[in-house]
Every structure is written in structure tokens, then in C-alpha cells.
Simulated assay, not measured.
Amino acid sequence: MSEAFTQRVGTAPEGVWAAPGRVNLIGEHTDYNDGFVMPFALPQRALLAARRRDDERWRLVSVDLDEEHELGVDDLVQGSPGWQSYLAGVVWVLREAGHRVGGADLVISSDVPVGAGLSSSAALECVTLAALADLYDLEIEPLERARLARRAENEYVGAPTGLLDQAASTLCRAGHALFMDCRSGEVEQVPFDLAAAGLELLVLDTAVAHSHVDGEYGERRASCEAAARVLGVPALRDVTDLDAALAALEDEVLRRRVRHVVTEDDRVLRAVELLRAGDVAGLAPLLDASHVSMRDDYEITVPAVDDAVTSARAHGALGARMTGGGFGGCIIALVEHGRAEEVGAAVAADQTAAGHPQPRWFSAQPSAGAGRV
């Protein structure tokens, strides 16, 4: 990245920073319901080389797209389209929060798959925030960094995401999953040693792209907020009697949404207990149940994703589910050690035979969060 920066800017960067994509092991669409999540960071990451400028202008360069944009203060406009909005949004939100951030040249490259539900956008935001915080000596705690990055996506980009993605990209540690209470911000690094358990976690990108900036994601969030109002609770995380809650809701769609969120929160809590006890294989039925809930109650899967999950189970996966915001993207599958490539290839063959796009796959290892390289 240093060489790419020098080629584009004409001088050496002051440093290089990295922030990862993430896989959400369990806990889908629970974050904006003040619930529980458990992601881990991927080795795939965004890399950013950066250098301060003397003016209040920002040069944003994508090595991958061979594109360059230069912005001034007046160009930091909410709702601006394009990849550059994720970087510009971080500049905007830092300044909105009262942090003294001057100009910078920012050159970025990422190998986090785009549109796969692996938080490629959060990686861009979190690496930009890490770089600017270091360059301008900003004292910002890790969780607050995640919250600021989420504000950039919510308020500048216009995607109504929860805190999961940015928290994972910022806070995760290698060899661990991140158990997070999205209301209190409390986190626990839970050991997640797949190899010791004789297992691998296959991540398969169905190549059906999704986007958070669309009506479906926003509709799910709005329906949860509507259900919470009817039930008289601050958020669906506060539903303690699911049967009573379902009986109190007349709308069948709201009943399904509530059932998913409440049962998914419970699955996260059960998964944490399993990992604390070192029982990685015990996650398998929770993955299966999570997928059924997302398919039937939250209605965020698509045929290619459902078929990939079914195929993975048929070819020997212990458990499998969609991961990410939905409407495309990736599945994860818990498989015996050494079988990820075999199962991935078998699922890919089934997908193409069914007329779905050709997928990509890899074996995921829990990796470190954002920081200077």
C-alpha cells in the first residue's frame, strides 16, 4: 500500500492501517433491537495508506477501482453516492462530533468481498477512522470509534444498519468471537478455536449481491420498532414472554418478525455458553435453527442462499445458515477439519447446476480488528 500511495500521491504515506470484514457467527438483525450478537473478524481486510495535508481537503483514491475523488468541506454532503461516501462519511462524522480533523490523502484497497454480507463497507469506515484518529491524535475509545463509524453509515451514507458490523471490525481479536450486548456496549472476547475442535468454518459467497441501502432492510427495522411500540417495550430485546407477545400482536407479519428476534437473541446466549465450554460442535443446531428463522419468520433469504444451505448440509456440514443482512450474500457452514474445500466445491457444483451464480468460498479464521499495520 505504501508503494501504491507514493505512485498516486507523489510522496510516502505517514502510515498504513487495516480493518477487517466480518462473519456474524450468530445473531442476525438483533443489533438494532438492542439485542445480542456474536461476530468474528476475517483475515480479508481493507488497507489504507494515509498522509495529512495542510489544507481542509481530502483526496480519496481506490486502487481497486482506479478512481480518485477530491473533496472540500462543502462537498461533505449526506447521501452522496459511491464507495467514496464511506470514507467521506467518516470525515464528516468526526467533524460533526467535534474532533479536529484536517485534510488528508487516503489511498485504499480491500479484498473483503463486496455485496457478500461480510461488511465490506464497515471495513472501509473503520480503517478510515483508525487512520484519521492516529494522524490527528484523537483520543477515541474503541467502542466509540465503532459508534462513530456506524453514524457515518447511518447518517451520511443512508444505510440503517445496527452496530454489529463496525464493532466487529474495530473490536475483534484473533482466535476469538466477539459477544456483544448492543444495548450496554459490553463485550466479551470468547475463545473460538475451530482447529482444536477438529472443525472448520466454511464461508461461501453465493454471488447474489445485496445492499443495506434498500427498502427491505429498512422495512425490517421499521417493523421491529412498530412491534416494540405495540408491546410497550423499549426494544424487542425486552420481550421476556414470547407467547404473550405473539398473542398481543394482531399483525401476522409483526408476529413473525418478533419471533425471529426473540429466538435469535436466545440462540446467541446459548452459543456463548457453548463456546465458553469449548463445545464448538454444539453450535451446529443453532446455525440450522437460525437459518430457518431467517427464512420463515424474518423472510430475508433468497433461493440461491436457501439452496446453498441445503446443499452444504447434504454434503456433510454439521450446521449451516445465511450470514449477514440478507437478500443474498454468504452462508456459513460448520464442517469437519480438512473438508471446507471439498464441501465448498460440492455446493458450488450444485449451485451452478441449479442455475444460480458461480459462488466463491474459503475457510474462515477469527482474526484481529482495526489498527495500524
Rank of each mutant, 00 (worst) to 15 (best):
A4W: 10
T6I: 03
P20F: 01
N24W: 11
N24H: 07
G27H: 07
G27E: 09
E28D: 08
E28V: 02
Y32A: 14
G35C: 09
V37C: 12
V37D: 03
P39Y: 08
A41N: 11
A46G: 14
R53H: 09
R53F: 08
D54H: 13
D55R: 10
E56M: 05
E56F: 01
W58C: 02
S62N: 12
L65F: 14
E68D: 14
V73S: 03
L76W: 00
Q78R: 15
Q84T: 13
S85L: 06
S85H: 04
R95D: 07
E96V: 12
R100Q: 14
A104D: 00
A104Y: 01
S109E: 15
V114W: 00
G115D: 11
S120N: 01
S120F: 04
S121Y: 04
S121T: 07
A123F: 09
L124E: 00
L129I: 05
A131I: 08
L132I: 01
I140Q: 11
E141T: 12
E144N: 08
L148V: 04
A149Y: 06
R150S: 00
R151S: 14
A152M: 06
E153V: 12
E155Q: 06
Y156P: 12
V157Y: 03
G158M: 11
G158P: 13
P160I: 02
G162I: 00
L163I: 15
S169P: 11
L171C: 10
R173W: 07
H176V: 00
D181T: 11
S184M: 04
G185W: 12
E188N: 11
E188Q: 15
P191D: 05
A195N: 02
G198M: 05
L199R: 13
E200L: 02
L202N: 00
L204Q: 04
T206L: 10
V208A: 01
A209E: 15
V213Y: 00
G215Q: 10
G218V: 07
E219C: 00
A222V: 07
A222E: 15
A226R: 15
A227D: 05
V233Y: 01
P234C: 10
P234Q: 06
V239P: 10
V239Q: 11
T240Y: 01
L242V: 04
V253E: 13
R256Q: 06
V258Q: 13
R259A: 14
V262F: 11
V262I: 12
A271H: 02
A271R: 07
L275Q: 07
D279I: 13
L283I: 07
A284T: 05
A284R: 08
L287R: 05
A289M: 11
S290F: 10
S290A: 15
S293E: 03
D297R: 06
D297T: 04
D306V: 09
A308C: 10
A308Q: 11
G316E: 08
M322T: 03
A340D: 10
V343N: 04
G344P: 01
D350I: 12
A353S: 14
H356M: 01
P357I: 03
W361N: 11
A364N: 14
Q365N: 02
G369R: 07
A370E: 12
R372I: 00
